[in-house]
Design a protein around this nucleic acid. Structure first.
Length: 429
DNA sequence: GCAGATGATTCGGT
DNA sequence: ACCGAATCATCTGC
């Protein structure tokens, strides 16, 4: 029995019976030397091959063995090899050298950019930072969310690499298996090395399509993670009580002109552990909501005014300044809001800063002091007899048009402040 | 679950 | 760029 692998490359120059190049052993034939006998012989073999699948396994095995041992087998094998090669050659061109898949390239690029594939560089912290930057603000729990993002990205990365490894291993194993199988089968059917190579390529293509699915789902996971990360940052979280108090304190002590300067915003942001943008948001919201419903904020305003005044009084009695946020547009001082001044001092600060002096601005601050003083006075019952609650804390900062008074003149400061004013002269503004 | 509070976003005006 | 206004989306207390 001929057990030598019949690889096609070893069969150059083979051909059909009656054709130039017909193998010698085919032309020799058997006992019958005429062409009819050979034809019938070959016809019989082909018939057996064609019907072999209709037979039982045992019968087929027996028939296979008989065919293998048939004297015409090598010749027929060679002919089949040649026919097959010609057939394969005619369809080969269409399948080879396909261009790189643009979708795969996109996925690869994205995975690389997100830090999933490629060298590990802090588990995609850059992507997290980018996501954070895109979201616009950074809260106090910024780092916690970053580490959460990083941890999840690392998890995705690990899963991706594990799966990729698994697929590659499976691909290699399968390829080896198929190659061995084909080599084995090449003994009994015409298989060329190129065909094996082609089969390997097909397997690789199949596995790379699976890999692409893996990459796609990984990309999706990263996208979901990222969007969740951004959504989480978008999520509204109430400021802590202390921050709200600081902001309110500033707001109500500058009620006549609740527009903190950039420096003041930065100070407030630092004190409240929030961003300047959040401070701006807060003041924007506060102004509009206060204006919309002043009555509702009455109590709050009273409370903060009283607190501010008491603080001021205490500070005054202790020979120090009240701890109150800076006046609008005043230069920020580092570390604290100890920038509260009497109106006079405020004016002098303005002058010292070289800012263009604005009477309106000063007026607003003076007015603010008046607001606060009125509150304190009314709270303590020292002055506000006959004033209704609304009068007690009239929204003097708001003009008839619904806007904040931007130019209350210092002359609007009324005499009643003169009396207790000595006590509250340090009232912050 | 609901209503109100509140931080964020969007849009138009200046 | 900043602000007011409207609106959205979530939080919070009941």
């Amino acid at each position: 029995m001929d057990e030598q692998p019949r690889l096609m490359h070893s069969h150059t120059g083979v051909g059909m019976a009656g054709h130039p190049g017909l193998p010698q052993h085919m032309q020799e034939g058997n006992g019958g030397t005429d062409g009819d006998g050979r034809k019938q012989d070959i016809g019989d073999i082909l018939q057996q091959i064609m019907t072999i699948t209709d037979q039982s396994l045992d019968e087929a095995q027996a028939r296979k063995h008989a065919l293998n041992c048939h004297r015409m087998k090598p010749a027929l094998f060679n002919v089949l090899c040649e026919i097959k090669e010609k057939t394969v050659l005619s369809i080969r061109g269409a399948q080879e050298e396909e261009p790189p898949d643009p979708q795969l390239m996109r996925l690869d690029n994205m995975l690389l950019a997100e830090g999933v594939s490629g060298p590990e560089k802090g588990g995609g912290s850059a992507a997290a930072a980018a996501a954070a930057a895109a979201s616009g603000g950074a809260g106090p729990d910024n780092s916690a969310e970053h580490s959460d993002y990083r941890a999840k990205l690392t998890q995705i990365r690990q899963i991706y690499h594990t799966e990729l490894e698994k697929y590659e291993q499976a691909c290699n194993e399968f390829t080896t298996h198929v190659m061995n199988l084909l080599r084995e089968q090449s003994r009994t059917r015409p298989i060329s090395p190129k065909e094996i190579e082609r089969m390997v390529n097909i397997i690789h293509r199949k596995f790379s399509s699976i890999q692409m699915q893996l990459k796609q789902s990984t990309c999706e996971a990263v996208m979901i993670l990222r969007s969740r990360f951004l959504d989480a940052r978008r999520k509204r979280r109430n400021f802590n009580k202390q921050a709200t108090e600081i902001l309110n304190e500033y707001f109500y002590s500058h009620l006549s002109n609740p527009y903190p300067s950039e420096e003041a915003k930065e100070e407030l942001a630092k004190k409240c552990a929030i961003t300047v943008a959040q401070v701006s948001n807060w003041f924007g919201n506060k102004r509009i909501r206060y204006k919309k419903n002043i009555g509702k904020f009455q109590e709050e305003a009273n409370m903060y005014a009283a607190r501010t005044a008491v603080n001021a009084a205490n500070a005054s009695s202790h020979g120090s300044q009240a701890n109150s946020p800076s006046t609008p547009n005043s230069a920020g001082s580092a570390g604290s809001f100890n920038m509260s001044n009497s109106g006079d001092l405020f004016m002098s600060v303005q002058s010292l800063n070289g800012d263009s002096y604005q009477g309106a601005q000063v007026g607003a601050n003076v007015q603010s002091q008046v607001d606060t003083l009125r509150h304190v006075i009314s709270q303590t019952g020292g002055y506000s007899e006959g004033l209704t609650a609304n009068q007690m804390y009239s929204p003097q900062g708001i003009n008839a048009n619904g806007g904040w008074q931007d130019a209350p003149t210092p002359s609007s400061v009324t005499s009643p402040t003169e009396g207790p004013g000595s006590v509250h002269s340090d009232t912050s503004n």
